[in-house]
Amino acid sequence: MPYSEEEFIMLSSLQHYTFCPRRCALIHKDQCWAENYLTVKGDLFHSRVDSYPIEKRKGFRTEFSMPICSSELGIVGKADVVEIRYQGKEIREVYPVEYKSGKPKHSTGNEVQLCAQVLCLEEMMGISIEIGYLYYGKDRRRIPIEMSQNLREEVAHTTHSIHQMLREEQLPPPIKKPHCKSCSLKEECQPNLSAKPRAVRSWINRILDKEGGAL
Rank of each mutant, 00 (worst) to 15 (best):
C120P: 00
P174L: 10
C120H: 02
C115I: 09
E35F: 05
K103A: 13
P53L: 05
G59S: 05
E153W: 03
V49D: 08
S194G: 12
L193M: 11
Q113P: 01
C20R: 00
P67C: 08
G213A: 15
Y86F: 15
W33K: 00
L208Y: 11
M66V: 06
V97T: 12
T39I: 03
F64P: 02
S71N: 11
V81P: 00
D30E: 12
K210R: 13
M125S: 04
D209N: 12
E98S: 08
E111K: 06
E83K: 10
E6W: 02
E6A: 14
I84T: 10
V40K: 13
E122P: 08
I68D: 07
V40R: 14
H16L: 07
P96E: 05
M1P: 14
M66A: 11
C24N: 12
S4W: 02
Y99Q: 00
K181A: 14
E130F: 07
C115F: 07
K58W: 09
L26M: 10
E98D: 15
H28V: 04
L119G: 06
E146N: 08
L14A: 03
W203H: 14
A116W: 00
P191G: 06
C189P: 00
G132S: 09
K177G: 08
P53F: 07
E63G: 02
R61L: 15
L185D: 01
E6K: 11
S71H: 14
L11T: 01
I145K: 02
S4P: 01
T39V: 03
K58G: 14
I54Y: 09
L193P: 01
L14K: 01
S71G: 06
K186A: 07
V94G: 05
F19T: 10
R198E: 15
I68F: 04
E211G: 06
S65V: 02
T108S: 12
V97S: 04
I145F: 03
T62V: 15
K105V: 13
L171E: 06
K138A: 14
R152T: 10
